[in-house]
């Protein structure tokens, strides 16, 4: 439990001083309040997610993702056929939303690792004018409401936006529609089956919005550690004749690798779970649904059990990342002790 509570401090930061000055009664009251609060606001809702997801048993849960195959010999009436077709459509949409969520996260994470490293490096290893301003800017996505973040991109990239004329006419290929077409028609054997026009209300807008809301995680996990380490080791490497890249890969990266992984996990969790910003820029098109948007749609279609089943997948992922976080914290504290 202590690890969870202390997880606000990024790994590598100085461990909290044991607070043992309160009286035994005060300590018990504090622990009691904490446990009661966590049970009421976190544990019970969490259990409820799984309870609702399994409201129709394991079969009902699995049917959300793998709809029942109709028996080819069975004679079905119209409404039974309709129900089967409906279940198949719903499962296809759900799988599509899972695919899109994973795709978005796999694009966002590498980009934010690069941006985060650059930002943390710039703000901790160099002294320059406006450094404080830059640090504040990096934190901005934390303090801006995600819905506002989404609307900002609508106002920038929408038809009446500042870049609207360019951004609504831009044609770009869907990288997931790359197909083998053979050498018959052109020099390249591969082609994109689908293109998108415009940025806002397309998957690209979802990627942009997700980058925005997850931007601070990597930078924020790295910055305290990088500031702590200082530029000494790098200066030494450079003075011995190592190149900038070599210094980075041999000195800096090994020093911060756990903090980096920690930031990646936070980014991943948020990228999977982001609702507000993504909802605004998705245009409510079914093919633009990420998992949280899909959950809302299922709920609005009175399909509570399916909504909670998809939610349980997200919750499970959150629990896994929580375990990973604790493992990293444990590892870094142990390394620090050594």
């Amino acid at each position: 439990m202590a690890g969870v509570l202390a997880s606000k401090a990024p790994p590598g930061a100085i461990a909290a001083r044991p607070a043992a000055t309160e009286s035994a009664l005060g300590r018990r009251i504090l622990i009691g309040i904490t446990v009661a609060f966590l049970t009421l606001f976190i544990l019970i809702p969490l259990i409820n997610v799984f309870h609702q997801a399994f409201a129709k048993g394991l079969d009902g849960y699995l049917a959300v993702f793998f709809p029942p195959e109709p028996d080819p010999n069975a004679v079905l009436n119209y409404s039974q056929k309709r129900r089967l077709a409906e279940a198949a459509t719903q499962a296809t949409r759900t799988w599509h939303s899972i695919g899109l969520t994973v795709a978005v996260a796999s694009i966002v994470i590498p980009l934010n690792v690069i941006f985060g490293l650059a930002a943390a490096w710039a703000t901790t290893k160099f002294e320059f004018r406006g450094r404080t301003l830059l640090t504040v800017l990096i934190d901005l996505p934390f303090s801006v409401s995600p819905v506002v973040a989404g609307l900002v991109f609508v106002l920038l990239l929408g038809r009446n936006g500042i870049f609207g004329d360019w951004a609504t006419q831009l044609v770009w290929p869907d990288i997931f529609s790359l197909r083998w077409v053979g050498f018959g028609e052109s020099f390249w054997p591969l082609a994109f089956e689908r293109t998108h026009t415009g940025i806002i209300f397309t998957p690209l807008a979802i990627v942009i919005a997700t980058i925005f809301v997850t931007f601070p995680f990597v930078a924020r996990s790295l910055a305290p550690l990088m500031a702590n380490l200082g530029p000494d080791e790098e200066t030494a490497a450079l003075s011995l004749g190592a190149s900038g890249w070599r210094t980075f890969f041999k000195i800096t990266l090994p020093n911060v690798k756990w903090a980096l992984l920690y930031g990646v996990i936070l980014t991943l969790t948020r990228a999977f779970g982001e609702f507000g910003a993504v909802s605004v820029v998705s245009g409510h098109i079914d093919v633009n649904d990420t998992m949280p948007l899909r959950i809302e749609k299922l709920w609005n279609e009175y399909n509570n059990q399916a909504a909670f089943s998809v939610a349980s997948v997200l919750t499970f992922l959150a629990l896994v990342s929580l375990v990973a976080k604790i493992a990293i914290e444990w590892k870094t504290t142990n390394e620090a002790k050594r």
């Binding site: 990288i175 790359l178 020099f187 082609a191 994109f192």
Partner: peptide, 14 residues
């Protein structure tokens, strides 16, 4: 990916 995109955006199968 960039090169491919430049070469073959005009194709649409459906």
């Amino acid at each position: 990916v960039g090169l491919l995109g430049a070469g073959s955006t005009a194709m649409a199968a459906e």
